[in-house]
Amino acid sequence: MSNKKPKKVFVDGPISPDKIATSIANHQSKTNIGAHSIFLGQVRADEIEGKTVTAIEYSAYEEMADKAFHEIRESAFEKFDLTCSHIYHSLGTVKAGEICLFVFTSSAHRKAAIEACNYLVEEIKANVPVFGKELFEDETHQWKVNH
């Protein structure tokens, strides 16, 4: 499954529920699949020192991020018996309650799909140069850090 072409991961703004539904529907013709696993990252309205996060503005070192996404995806195919995998991440402003990350793995059986999905999410959070500016309602901000 290696030598796959790098796929476009970044989308402008939030990931729409329609995109997720369409993505699921697109796999109905692949009848060797027996299990899908989906992770959806949603912007949380954190309260920090009395102020509430209203949105996150995402930016990225896109050239490096595209390479990192590709490598992470390749390594998932090496580690797990996957039929396919998809990653979408937002750039720009995503409001609290909207989706900013969509990871979708499919396999013949549930275990590979679930484990690969988890692996991809953890790798993305740790190794992809995406930056998030948490915007508060009073127009101040702070920079998000993954833990």
């Binding site: 900013c100 998030g132 993954n146």
Partner: peptide, 10 residues
């Protein structure tokens, strides 16, 4: 060369 702050994807 790129100077990168902490990653915050997802």
């Amino acid at each position: 060369i790129a100077l990168l702050p902490p990653f915050a994807g997802g």
